[in-house]
Design a protein around this nucleic acid. Structure first.
Lengths: 208, 208
DNA sequence: ATAAAAACTGACCGTTCGGTCAGACTTCGC
DNA sequence: GCGAAGTCTGACCGAACGGTCAGTTTTTAT
């Protein structure tokens, strides 16, 4: 073959192939079917070859999780540190989250099992990513409290509730294979929480 | 020995001993350490004896999960079908949930992994219990909507959000080993959702 | 006391799976 | 064309685990 081999690019290409195989396997047959043998088979290479690219199973799974979550994490971070108002940030956050899910339904099936995946490989890994998301959301809420657009609440706790509510809707969408527009679900979460966070003064003034 | 053996009671006692051993193991070393050998060792009997009481590992784990969840499930059901107003039911639900968690912290560590445990044993098992909880909560919300104390929302979706928010706070309590009174956390969830569910009319009238 | 019945034991088996490595195969430089 | 360097292979290994059962111990009935 005349095409270049041996390059970092080519190597990355092969790594991608393996990762895609892992994702396909996970989506099609669940985590239990992701054995190194099956991964190799799905990729179309021998088991030993997988070990030329990843030290062990844990490293492979972490790589898969990282590439799968990277785009979402990045987008969410952009939203959280942006210049919009706290209300708009929360609305944007949940919408992005659910939209990403709809775009990559198969991918997200893995993420729903993330806690399990995480526990299979080296524990507290996911905690960092999750904690960052909670922390970022909490900062937005705290900002809203400071600006008097939210009433005074424990930001971290509400942030956790907000994220988990979003995940809950994502879950519902997946299980029910719901044809509901993403926007509706995103609006539901945002409406509940923004109304729930509205300061008493605003509630007295009345809603739009 | 003069004490009675062979009785159903005595058998139940032995089964309890095995289940307690499973819970101790889970709490102390995580799900991965729950092998039949370790369970037997922890109970103080031989592996084969465990199989005199449970057909296989799956049956044992299901029994453990059932006994652990039964009291909570029962209490929550009482609340959900009771005569109180929808608002009070939701408040009572989240309070019971978090209180039960505080009472049996160790036990609940398992419940947090329930999804994983479930997946390890025969899949959709937990789905039923979870679905019942969601359905019950959704009925309460639907009732509130009918009585015009809640605004018109998708009851099932909000129910899922409500439960997951509760779980989120429970999680926070566990991770942070928070000394916060349970009542405060329960109130937070309830406040957010009740405010979020309040009909526009009520918001115009103003809050207490 | 004794024998039948019941309860218990733990060595053993089969399977699964992560990881290894000696050798086969491919590519590259000359 | 040829040998060296790099790449790939899959048979193999050891550990872990769920489950079994022939044999041992304990309990019960007489």
């Amino acid at each position: 073959m005349a095409s270049p081999k041996n390059t970092d690019l080519w190597n990355e290409f092969k790594r991608q192939g393996i990762q895609q195989a892992v994702i396909r396997l996970m989506c099609r047959e669940g985590l239990k079917s992701v054995t190194m043998e099956r991964v190799a088979q799905e990729t179309g290479i021998a088991k030993g070859t997988v070990y030329l690219h990843y030290r062990d199973k844990q490293e492979l799974l972490e790589a898969v999780k990282d590439s799968a979550l990277a785009p979402l994490t990045e987008k969410l971070h952009e939203i959280l540190v942006g210049a919009a108002s706290p209300e708009r940030k929360l609305r944007a956050l949940v919408l992005r989250y659910l939209t990403y899910f709809d775009e990559k339904r198969d991918l997200f099936r893995i993420l729903l099992y993330e806690r399990e995946v995480t526990r299979v490989m080296g524990e507290r890994y996911q905690t960092d990513r999750y904690r960052n998301l909670i922390d970022g959301t909490a900062r937005v809420i705290r900002d809203g409290v400071r600006k008097r657009v939210f009433r005074n609440v424990d930001a971290r706790h509400v942030a956790a509730m907000f994220i988990e509510s979003t995940v809950a809707l994502m879950n519902q969408r997946l299980l029910d294979d719901s044809p509901r527009p993403v926007e509706d679900d995103a609006e539901l979460v945002a409406d509940i929480f923004l109304a729930g966070l509205a300061p008493v003064a605003a509630r007295r003034r009345g809603a739009a």
